[in-house]
Simulated scan of single mutants.
Amino acid sequence: MSPLHLTRKQRLAGLLGMFLVTSALAPVIPATHSLAGVTMPDTIRVDGATLRLNGMGVRSFTFLQIHGYVAGLYVPAPAHDEATLLATKGPKLLQISYVRSAGLGRVRGEMRAAHLRTCASGCSPREDGEYQQLLATARPVHAGDVSSYVFQANGDVQVLLDDQRLATIHGPDLARAMLDGMIGRNAPTRALRTGLLGG
């Protein structure tokens, strides 16, 4: 397939690798999965490892169930329970494809809500500091934008928006909290959690 016939998501997956300091993301198998109009490749290369799509979930808002984004979780070995996935060493990739635009306030509000859920029983000052670094990466988004969070084996979290690397945060606690906030009991919706767990 020539570059002229690649879809926007396929081109984006290739671009992501150019902007990671220590990671190279690129689809290695043309098989794809689709949900709510979003297509993601079956596998992606990260830090020289082939990660597989564990599942895709849609995040809906309000009683009208308006779709806001579709998230995909890539891991070395797919599993269907959060304990196994949280214990798995990196690299792992959480990719969020927005299907609706959102302003900076709404994006930050979603991040703050996730932090409150995961820190319901209290977070350490270090965890709060890591969260503040993550909050600083918030940007307004438009339909079609893609945020990528690369959880590396050394505990770093790389944050990208489309082809722009926004930050590298050293925070193994942050990585676990972010993932737990999507697939654990603190997930914002059951549908998102179930989808990411491959249900």
Rank of each mutant, 00 (worst) to 15 (best):
V58Y: 01
P27I: 06
G144R: 00
A136T: 04
D47C: 10
Q95E: 14
M56Y: 04
V99C: 10
S2I: 13
R11K: 10
L94M: 13
A36L: 13
Q132E: 12
L134G: 06
R11G: 06
P3D: 08
N154Y: 12
M56C: 01
Y74T: 09
H67T: 12
H142M: 10
G129V: 07
I44T: 08
Q132D: 09
S97M: 11
L160W: 04
S34Q: 11
V28L: 10
A36T: 11
R126V: 10
G181T: 04
R126M: 08
I96N: 00
Q132N: 12
F19R: 15
A79F: 01
G144W: 02
A120R: 15
G48A: 04
R108H: 02
V146A: 02
S23I: 05
T22G: 15
A77I: 12
Q133E: 13
G57L: 04
P140R: 03
D42H: 13
L174T: 05
T7Y: 02
M1K: 14
P188D: 07
V21C: 11
A26C: 12
G129W: 03
G198W: 03
L25N: 04
L116V: 12
A113Y: 02
R11E: 14
N54K: 01
G72W: 08
A102C: 02
D162P: 12
A167P: 14
L64E: 10
Q65T: 10
G199P: 13
F61I: 15
A36K: 09
Y69V: 05
L16M: 14
G90S: 02
G14F: 09
D163Y: 12
G181K: 01
D156Y: 10
V58F: 04
L179F: 07
D163V: 07
A138K: 02
A138E: 08
I96T: 09
S147R: 13
G17I: 11
A87C: 07
Q158C: 08
N154M: 06
D163I: 02
V146R: 00
Y149G: 00
A31Q: 15
R8P: 15
G171L: 00
S97L: 06
P125I: 03
G198M: 02
M182C: 13
L160Q: 13
L53M: 06
Y131G: 01
H170G: 02
C119D: 14
